[in-house]
């Protein structure tokens, strides 16, 4: 394994794979931070399971990215040796866990998009992508259901739980616009039938999210200013701290194996 920071080639499919993999890895890492801290045993198990699914999906995508790049990088160099600006995940998934309500809401906002997205990707002209999506889709279906149940329960729960999830919704909503952004590199892949257009899933996502938020007695926020930049490697303050922990061992002991 390389020991210094790595950069990756600028190739549309590779860039796309890393973006999707980064979403899964970073959200998986965030969820894994709950290990040993969840409010009840069942949630300890659920969070660990969801984190494991996400990190597994990231591994499949990084593995394929390594094949596409063919430059000697692998899942480990992508995860441990890319600098902050080399990561291209959605800003939504890097946001700090906050409390349990914020974690479940973040999970829900992402899962409610990625589940139909994986279903659409199963029709990809690229058989490897279609196979990765076929597996991830089933896992994401559980994440949607689990997180939606908690959004409803907390929103329609006590005054305190409602206040907490309502605050999280205001804080996280400006990060949801980026989910549907597409740049020129991805546009080409969409036109070639390799990946679905996320814009086509936006109305469905909004309907689904509005249904759950309404059941949770939460107000659906208006789409105001939307944050973006994650897809180009411009992150929020939270991300550097996350990466410092994620990459600590390989940075402190370059090339360490065990």
């Amino acid at each position: 394994m390389a020991t210094g920071s790595v950069t990756v080639a600028d190739q549309p499919l590779l860039r796309y794979l890393l973006r999707r993999a980064d979403d899964a890895l970073i959200l998986g890492h965030r969820v894994s931070e709950w290990c040993g801290h969840a409010p009840i045993m069942e949630e300890e198990m659920a969070l660990a399971n969801m984190g494991l699914d996400l990190i597994g999906q990231a591994r499949s995508l990084y593995g394929y990215a390594a094949e596409v790049e063919g430059a000697g990088n692998d899942e480990n160099t992508y995860a441990y040796l890319r600098d902050e600006r080399g990561y291209m995940n959605l800003l939504l998934v890097e946001q700090a866990n906050g409390d349990f309500a914020a974690t479940m809401l973040r999970q829900y906002l992402y899962s409610a998009f990625i589940h139909p997205y994986w279903l659409a990707l199963m029709g990809s002209a690229d058989p490897t992508l279609a196979a990765i999506a076929a597996k991830a889709e089933k896992e994401a279906a559980y994440h949607v259901r689990h997180s939606a149940e908690w959004v409803i329960r907390l929103g329609d729960g006590t005054a305190e739980s409602h206040r907490r999830i309502a605050e999280a919704l205001v804080r996280l909503w400006p990060f949801t616009g980026e989910i549907f952004e597409v740049d020129a590199a991805e546009r080409g892949l969409i036109e070639a039938g390799v990946i679905p257009d996320p814009a086509g899933l936006r109305d469905g996502w909004k309907r689904e999210v509005a249904t759950i938020l309404t059941r949770a007695t939460l107000e659906v926020p208006a789409d105001g200013w939307m944050q973006q930049g994650g897809r180009l490697g411009r992150h929020t303050e939270a991300f550097g701290h996350l990466l410092a922990e994620l990459q600590y061992v390989q940075r402190a002991y370059p090339g360490a194996t065990w």
Binding site: L52, I55, R59, I132, K135, A136, E139
Partner: peptide, 8 residues
């Protein structure tokens, strides 16, 4: 063939 994506 892998089972679940994250199956250790």
């Amino acid at each position: 063939t892998p089972t679940y994506s994250g199956c250790p």
